[in-house]
Amino acid sequence: MKVREICSVLNGELICGDYKNDNEVSHAFASDLMSDVLTVNCDSLLLITGLANLQTIRTAEMSDINCILFVRNKSVTPEMKTLAEELGITLIKCPLTMFRASGELYRAGIKPIY
């Protein structure tokens, strides 16, 4: 699924990234616990999280995650956005809860890792 479609399914908003270089996302992992995210081994992964701080971006960098979805319209600081842009990480936010966003994406064909 492309980022554009993810935004469409979730009524989401692209915070940074580019639809032109839109990578395909096949799997998703939902967590607010960054150590948990660091245990995951999967390519083309979407991180769904309610944790919005610089370490969320850093964790994605270390885990080779190219796309983060912030649920409940969490605020993304300018520092987070700058770092994500530097690293080529796409950021999306949506108004839905983590449960609802995960459910909608699952229904739309995004696969779980486990």
Partner: peptide, 15 residues
């Protein structure tokens, strides 16, 4: 609150 401190760090390193 930063998303750490769940007692996974050292086991992650070990793994």
């Amino acid at each position: 609150e930063m998303g750490f401190g769940a007692g996974m760090g050292l086991p992650n390193i070990s793994a």
